[in-house]
Amino acid sequence: MQTVSNKNRKLIIRLQDVERIYKVGVESIHALGGINLELYENEYVAVMGPSGSGKSTLMNVLGCLDRATSGSYELDGENTTKMTDASLARVRNERIGFVFQSFELLGQVSALKNVEMPLIYSKNGWWTRRKRALSVLERVGLGDRVKHKPNQLSGGEKQRVAIARALVCNPSILLADEPTGNLDSKTSDGILQLFDQLHQEGQTIILVTHEDYVSHHAKRIIHMKDGHICSDLSNNRDPRNNAVTQDRKPEEKV
């Protein structure tokens, strides 16, 4: 097993013996059974594993949506384990950007309003909100679609809006849960290229996927099984040489 060395980079995430136990009746289910993980600035990590392997639980814990039953989770040097709900909400707002499989856009408002939404919950004035939302929409290549509502946008554009929304607060990490799961392969490539671009611009990215060709874009691939990390490898392949789109069923869900 090859460990990744990140001696000179800033530590962003440190998980120590993180366990997440669900109690169902008298039975306890170890969704996470003692995870140790360190993530550095500007890493691009793919978390892979079959369903039930605990990768979603890990994402929830990393995203501060869920708390570890035991162990400690440090984000940007701050221990989040003992934080209040309100503080966790602030952490989610300022440090974490979420991208979901099904986009989760508000249908009644424009792309711009969708992107502005997280800024409503932080201390920003109207003008700052607008400026930042516009610049981040520009960054994901939707500078000309800001006034469109989600139903006027294609699937790929919707996910770009969602990514813009995740980036608008300048998060320390971008968490993407199956970001290409609802997209066809061509659009998926576009989204993955956007992730590559964001990575090159210095963004730390963690994405959950069960598709190899998606994980090939990442620079580090973590495999999970039964609540444990079973491999943690660096990936030096150039994704452009891996045209493995054929092992994907075309347009399963749009």
């Binding site: 995203g63 949506l65 709900d85 309100a86 909400a89 602030r90 952490v91 989610r92 707002n93 300022e94 979420f98 979901f100 989760e104 508000l106 939404m117 997280p118 919950y121 932080s122 929304r165 607060c169």
Partner: peptide, 16 residues
Amino acid sequence: TREIGLRKAVGAKKTA
């Protein structure tokens, strides 16, 4: 419900 979940995920506090 999903909208509420989303809002919470992006940092809306209970009071909000």
